[in-house]
């Protein structure tokens, strides 16, 4: 049985300008021990998919569909049941390391709280376990750091504290939402190493949400590319990067400046990211797609593609067109 099984997840928000559908009819499964990379630009629905799964949507948001995890449907579970799962079997690490920690609580105490609540440890035992976990994530001088407030730590250390906190109950699933976006590259490299270690040593399943293709390239086993609230391509990491099947994935790869080569002119994807309130009927990427045909007026389903992955694109001849062009 899959560790996580998302079926027909749709997330809507009521806004003053009308309803916005942030995630549309999304389905995927995830196996134990794997790392699934979720790639997309702002507004692609990559964060809201997992906020909905964890019952963390804003008040004006509603989710429909099924999110099956450990025998429970997270979308219909009550607050009590969710609280027993969140931070325990499934933990989340957020992008904003400053606002995601409680500012008026010492780091050690807010970490210990997790163990007291979920595992019923005594305060002293929880504190020791928290310090051990800080050591595990390679925070130097963990006893002293545990007695500090979040603002006394650097961004990299705060992100480490968040990861340490998320690992306290040895979760089966770690959801990392842009865990390194606010960090410098040298710090980012250390945090990614840490996530890799957690995945390999503890067999923790990891969902890595990011806009940075380089980050998923180093860590993910499979990659889902999202656009306008839908998965447009899903496949093995090697295949996604070596032979992307969807024009959007191809475009993203071509327009990412790379340190290891100097192309003369950077390729671009024309136009702007979509406005979710004014999506075209049919394929949402069609207005920006160089391969648009009449069939794109109808929304393409996610279907098997060459290379063993899935794609939501009406055409099958794009690879040969690209080969002829290059």
């Amino acid at each position: 049985m899959a560790l996580l099984d998302v079926r027909n997840l749709t997330v809507r928000f009521d806004t003053p300008d009308g309803e916005v559908q942030a995630v549309s009819d999304l389905s995927f499964t995830m196996e134990k021990g794997e790392c699934l990379g979720i790639v997309g630009e702002s507004g692609s629905g990559k964060s809201q998919t997992f906020m909905a799964a964890m019952g963390l949507l804003a008040d004006n948001g509603r989710a429909t569909g099924d999110v099956l995890f450990g025998g429970a449907n997270l979308l219909t579970a009550g607050e009590k049941q969710l609280n027993a799962i969140r931070g325990n079997k499934a933990a989340m690490v957020f992008q904003d390391h400053m606002t995601s920690l409680t500012p008026h609580m010492k780091v050690g105490r807010q970490m210990a709280e997790v163990l007291v609540r979920h595992r019923g440890l005594s305060a002293a035992a929880a504190r020791d376990a928290a310090i051990a976990m800080l050591k595990r994530v390679q925070i130097p001088d963990p006893e002293r750091r545990a007695a500090m407030y979040p603002h006394e730590l650097s961004g990299g250390l705060r992100q480490r504290v968040m990861i340490a906190m998320s690992l306290l109950c040895h979760p089966e699933l770690l959801i990392a939402d842009e865990p390194t976006t606010a960090l410098d590259v040298t710090v980012q490299a250390l945090i990614l190493d840490l996530i890799r270690e957690v995945k390999e040593q503890d067999r923790t399943s990891v969902i890595l949400i990011t806009h940075d293709l380089g980050v998923v390239a180093g860590l993910a086993d499979r990659v889902a590319v999202m656009y306008a609230g839908r998965i447009v391509e899903l496949g093995d990491v090697a295949q996604i990067f070596a032979a992307p099947q969807h024009p959007y994935t191809q475009g993203l790869l071509a327009c990412t400046p790379r340190l290891d080569d100097v192309g003369k002119v950077l390729k671009t994807i024309s136009g702007q990211p979509p406005n979710l309130q004014r999506l075209p009927p049919g394929c949402a990427f069609a207005p920006r797609c160089p391969f648009k045909i009449a069939a794109c007026a109808e929304r393409p389903p996610l279907r098997p593609a060459a290379g063993g992955g899935l794609k939501a694109c009406a055409r099958d001849d794009i690879a040969s067109i690209n080969r002829a062009a290059s």
Binding site: T186, Q188, A189, D212, G214, A217, F241, R258, L259, D260
Partner: peptide, 16 residues
């Protein structure tokens, strides 16, 4: 050198 070695490359083979 350290800075450059930390920049992720969008290519799973090279990056790993």
């Amino acid at each position: 050198r350290a800075l450059m070695s930390a920049v992720p490359i969008p290519d799973p083979v090279k990056e790993r």
